[in-house]
Nucleic acid binder design. Structure first.
Lengths: 181, 181, 181, 181
DNA sequence: GATGAATGAGAGTTCATTCAT
DNA sequence: AATGAATGAACTCTCATTCAT
């Protein structure tokens, strides 16, 4: 029984279902079946708990995505594979995905956390750039392309958590159509 | 000098720049140059203030969009016009747009507010459906299509508040490519 | 009914009788018959309350002493008058005097408070210096002389709060014997 | 390496330099290089630690004073010797002396501790009484005399920790002048 | 005997809301 | 209608103490 894990799991569940404000440390302790003080042995403050959870989930997400990446495959295939993985993650880990959405663009997430997380996207950038070099992806700023696809797909998942296989495919193809030249 | 307007304007500024949690009613009163009690003459509670502001901004956004809508124009032209208007709004009213983003998918926004707001999208739905009937837009669930485009474009604006004309056009065309069949 | 006064009076009583640590803000509120929040309208923090009370009492003490000072009288007479006043104050305001003793040499009292208070002693210094010039008080550093007398007399009062007229006179004469040359 | 000693030494240092409130048991453990639990093998509670340290220091102080006492010497000589010893102790053991000052007149020190400590003064009382019998010390209540001298000298040391030989002598002579008839 | 993770009571403080003016 | 002093529930966080190892 890992206490740190329990605390993070409890916090995740409560933050997503009730909002951060409505989730007191006392409540997290109750859900995690530990005393309030115990949580402060693992996380210096509520804010730090929020940040560590954010970084941890984002890292897990990108790890999942990148693990299965075949950098020799054709760009379109890589693009679809990556986004399928991302959507799979979002569905299998719905709370986690909602959490990322909740705290993105939020003053709760520190500059430091943003930095740690910003590096994770590099391998994905690589795919888009390869596509641009091959002339099959639009010649726009890569970050612009990624943000657009991320936004479109994320919003779709958040709004339709019970999405089916067919719909997932359709959405990823929409994303592809958006960026392909 | 409209007091209600002042309060909403003050709240908007403070919520977006400091976060909702860090914005006490006292602070809003100070910014709006009125007493704390006064605010409670216009809004029963902080939550209601948040909700009314949300509905008001969203209504203003859609009003702006729809006002200039030429329902007889070709679908692609309407699509582009709508999204240009939306982006214009987002840029000219950056605080307002950030506010909408902040509180979307948030337990702070009540079911009632969501409902009020959900109707505003009808005219936009109409464009997509016309496109589908004409066979120039993908034959997918209309809401799915709208969510995807909204997500992609919104995320782009939020992440790049100083976006230029050229980039805006590119992004809207990406959105069009995503939904066109 | 002055609320600020009530709070200070309540804090004074509780701090002296139970110690500062054992006196929670809640308890002070109860004694002062006001809510916890009310106290924070008058004092930003517990520490500031402690400091303001300290400065206020010390100021009152010296005001009392100095008020009745006849700077033309002979030095010995002034010396005795000052210390009689001080002892009178200590007896009539026993809680106040104990409070000063409690928080002297304490990290709770800020540098700023110390400074404010340090100026109050000037008129008393003047008496000792006059005595030194006249050759009737020992030619030692004036502060040294004052500290010794203060220490002796204060300790006596603190240890014997029910001291009588005769004893007071004896103690002040001891103090005079200590400093006279 | 005596663990109990280490704990007391650590506590002494931290209490005096940071105040008792700011000194947690955890911190004492860190300074004493032992676990938190270990301290509870030697002292049932923080309060008991404080009390035992108080009694121990006060005992050490009086032991030092009395050790060198020549009860056959003239009263004035004994008086000066005793107070020189006391001041020596205060200077060589500045932390210890500050500690005694910190906790005197404090609700932290239990009645029991006060009692244990009150007996230590007997040999000093003897000097004053002898002086009174010989008519060279004022015919006042002995405790009154002792308290006055203690107060004057202690306050002087606390306020001037870097006092020099000459000043010490002056102060002790002031004390003598105060009590001599 | 030695340890320190776990605990939860209780601290100081904040702030949405009320209500007498 | 306008005000802001008053309120106290509820927050985050601390820390003396316990106890399984």
């Amino acid at each position: 029984m890992n206490k740190r894990e329990n605390i993070l799991k409890a916090a995740l569940k409560l933050f997503v279902t009730q909002g951060e404000q409505a989730t007191s440390m006392k409540l997290i302790g109750k859900e995690a079946k530990c005393g309030i003080g115990t949580m402060y042995n693992y996380f210096c403050s509520k804010d730090i708990l929020i940040n560590e959870l954010f970084v941890e989930i984002k890292t897990k997400l990108f790890k999942t995505i990148i693990e299965s990446l075949d950098t020799n495959a054709p760009v379109k295939q890589q693009f679809i594979a990556v986004w399928l993985k991302a959507v799979d993650f979002a569905i299998s880990n719905h709370l986690e995905y909602r959490y990322l959405d909740m705290f993105s663009h939020t003053p709760k997430i520190s500059k430091q956390s943003e930095e740690k997380v910003s590096k994770l996207i590099y391998p994905v950038i690589e795919i888009y750039e390869k596509g641009k070099r091959e002339g099959i992806i639009k010649d726009l700023d890569t970050i612009t392309l990624i943000i657009f696809t991320t936004g479109g797909i994320t919003e779709s998942i958040i709004n339709k958590p019970d999405i089916n296989e067919q719909e997932i495919k359709s959405i990823i193809l929409m994303a592809w159509d958006a960026v392909k030249s």
